[in-house]
């Protein structure tokens, strides 16, 4: 990563956190549908970023979100898991001809079909872990599934919109 990239992604890190903590925290559609948009920061980091850096970034991001959500550890656990399986999952989805290591795996670079297969399972795992931990100690399994499914949809759709609005082809953010 070049210096300008590091500055760019640091700003993106802060922007994602700001939007998540001060705006999206208040937006819960129908009382069930959460938007945990911050996972898209990890999802759209360049492919060359190693798993160790991803883990630290995911841990830090999850902790900050948890502090503001008063859900200590829940976002952290889910995000660390997402950070750990992101790179193996990218590798498993290698298209013919391989990747250009320096481009970020975004919607505009990879196309909708690839991006859905890449992002949707990762978001699903993240959200199911988050809402599962939240539902521990209660017996509301039905509500847990509704919350998880509707939130996956909300997060994913808003993530797509954000990429269409704020991301450039090739250069990422």
């Amino acid at each position: 990563m070049t210096g300008s990239n590091i500055i760019k992604y640091s700003l993106a890190f802060l922007a994602y956190l700001f939007v998540q903590v001060f705006i999206l925290k208040e937006v819960v559609l129908f009382g069930y549908s959460f938007c945990l948009l911050y996972v898209f920061f990890l999802l759209t980091l360049p492919i060359e970023v190693g798993t160790v850096s991803l883990l630290f970034l995911g841990f830090g991001m999850g902790m900050v979100v948890d502090v503001f959500y008063d859900s200590l550890g829940m976002n952290t656990a889910a995000t660390v898991l997402l950070a750990f399986i992101r790179n193996p999952w990218i590798k498993a989805n290698t298209p013919r001809g391989g990747y250009d290591e320096h481009i970020p795996p975004t919607l505009l670079n990879m196309g909708l079909g690839w991006f859905v297969i890449y992002a949707l399972p990762l978001i699903t795992i993240h959200h199911f872990l988050f809402f599962y931990v939240d539902s521990l100690g209660t017996d509301n399994y039905f509500i847990f599934v509704i919350r998880a499914l509707s939130s996956i949809l909300f997060t994913f759709l808003l993530g797509i919109v954000v990429q269409l609005l704020f991301y450039n082809k090739k250069r990422g953010i």
Binding site: L55, L72, M74, A77, V80, F84
Partner: peptide, 28 residues
Amino acid sequence: ILFILLELIAFWFIFSYNSAQGAVFFNS
């Protein structure tokens, strides 16, 4: 190894926070 370590920390937070007196520093 790092993954396991960070997950252990996260789950330790989850379970210790749900006890009566949580670590106040790490909440809002």
